[in-house]
Design a protein around this nucleic acid. Structure first.
Length: 427
RNA sequence: GCGACUAUGGCGAAGUGGUUAACGCACCAGAUUGUGGCUCUGGCAUGCGUGGGUUCGAUUCCCACUAGUCGCCCCA
């Protein structure tokens, strides 16, 4: 093999690309319905943005960034996530001054993380995400979660679960952090090396450790929910209230911490409950990030958003047996016999395409039999056959492939013949 | 980044230290002189992930690399 695709990346070939288009189209339409508009930001940003935005104690920053220096000596990074760039654009273009508040945005595009690939995990993957900036209303939280769930349901996913938690505001987090340090510090040597380091850097993440999950200290560890101050508790109650009002079932997981530093108050994930989803069961992750806009250099402004992976979404659809369009099938295949007929076919194919039909013909010198076979393979609804007889009479032989029935249609009437037929079938 | 397993034609999949690498699907041709889907016949890997090594000889043994899968970590 001369060349291989870089590790953890993938080509999306015809047959699959149609599924991507469909899924993205559904997501875009729903975003539009909810009042979100698309924003497109660069694939790479200054490294500093992610250090500040994502947090330099996170795994993403510490070991997963594709960072490089350009010829001008600038430190750049292929974006590992979408929120920091969107907030950067929001601040840079002073969109906080827009009369439309909150500003509701969505994006779709590749993200890059230097990770060991496995099922559902890639080095380049596509996230579809939304960010609502400028609202600290718990109803906003509910809307964002509702939109994510709506996208999945619209595509036909049934076996999904919404998991939520609250990290509270800064004061609550600080109080909880202190409680965690107090709880673990006496016996920290009983936990794994990572957790020992986390005690210093980010004790909250200890709760998320899979290795020490069953340790007795975990079960007795102080829950963030017990350290929410009145304001944070009230906020979380409101969020739950709105979700209930919307009829959105959810479960609370006090250990749902999420991997990015900027989260506070509401965090959530949507998981697939279909079989075969291990590490990649998280289809969507999101949360509130009040304070991030300020961190990036803007005014104090709340925000909330989510990001979902298209790869995992497609995997979940596959696991649940949901059929997606494959782009197969054409309206008509024009088969020609002989040189004269070939010329007529070339003209006819173009004419029918101009009339709005999906039409194709032979370009590799197939005989009639092979042309019919090719038409069958292309899932053509009809085949137009042209030979000397047809040319003399200016009447084509038209075969309906499903039934095998043949009729004669004058050349001049072919376009309207097919337009009528295909339109009827499409409805 | 760590551990384990895997790598044969377009796809799936047998197989062996020694001249010709099963089989199925797909594809191409013919039986059908102007007609697809069924059937029959024939064709289709100077090649067994890449690079080294052992050997008289390797697709088969060893090493490295690359890639995939699974577990860990973490996430989308």
């Amino acid at each position: 093999m001369a060349f291989q695709i870089p590790r953890g990346t993938q080509d999306i070939l015809p047959g699959d690309s149609e599924k991507w288009q469909y899924v993205e189209q559904v997501a875009r339409e729903l975003c539009s319905r909810y009042g979100y508009r698309e924003i497109r930001t660069p694939i790479f940003e200054h490294t500093e943005l992610f250090l500040r935005g994502v947090g330099d104690t996170t795994d993403i920053v510490q070991k997963e960034m594709y960072t490089f220096e350009d010829k001008g000596g600038r430190a750049l990074t292929l974006r590992p996530e979408g929120t920091a760039p969107v907030v950067r654009a929001f601040v840079e273009h002073k969109l906080y001054g827009s009369p439309n508040q909150p500003l509701k945005l969505y994006y779709s595009g590749p993200m890059f993380r230097y990770e060991r690939p496995e099922a559902g995990r890639f080095r380049q993957f596509v996230q579809f995400g939304v960010e609502a900036l400028g609202s600290g209303d718990p109803a906003m939280d509910a809307e964002v979660m509702a939109l994510a769930m709506h996208i999945y349901e619209a595509l036909g996913l049934k076996r999904i679960r919404l998991v939520i938690n609250s990290l509270g505001d800064l004061d609550s987090r600080r109080a909880h952090r202190e409680a965690l340090v107090r709880h673990f510090s006496g016996r920290i040597d009983e936990l794994c090396a990572d957790c020992q380091a986390r005690l210093e850097t980010n004790p909250l993440r200890i709760l998320d450790c899979k290795k020490d999950r069953d340790h007795e200290l975990m079960a007795t560890a102080p829950s963030i929910l017990d350290y929410l101050n009145d304001e944070s508790r009230a906020y979380f109650e409101k969020v739950k209230h709105y979700l209930a009002m919307l009829g959105l079932p959810f479960v609370i997981d006090a250990r749902l911490v999420r991997g990015l530093d900027y989260y506070n108050h509401t965090t959530f994930e949507i998981m697939s409950e279909a079989e075969g989803f291990g590490a990649a069961a998280t289809l969507c992750g999101g949360g509130r990030y009040n304070g991030l806009v300020e961190e990036i250099g803007g005014p104090e402004m709340p925000g909330i958003g989510f990001a979902l992976s298209i790869e995992r979404l497609l995997a979940a659809l596959e696991a649940e047996g949901v059929e997606l369009p494959t782009g197969e099938g054409i309206d008509c295949y024009v088969a020609a016999l002989g040189e004269r007929a070939k010329e007529e076919a070339v003209r006819l194919v173009y004419q029918l395409r101009r009339a709005g039909l999906r039409v194709d013909q032979d370009y590799v010198g197939r005989k009639l039999k092979a042309q019919l076979k090719a038409a069958d393979r292309l899932k053509a609804a009809f085949v137009v056959m042209i030979g000397d007889e047809e040319l003399d009479k200016q009447i084509a032989t038209v075969k309906e492939m499903a039934s095998g029935e043949q009729t004669n249609v004058p050349f001049g009437e072919l376009a309207s013949f097919f337009t009528e037929r295909t339109r009827r079938e499409g409805e």
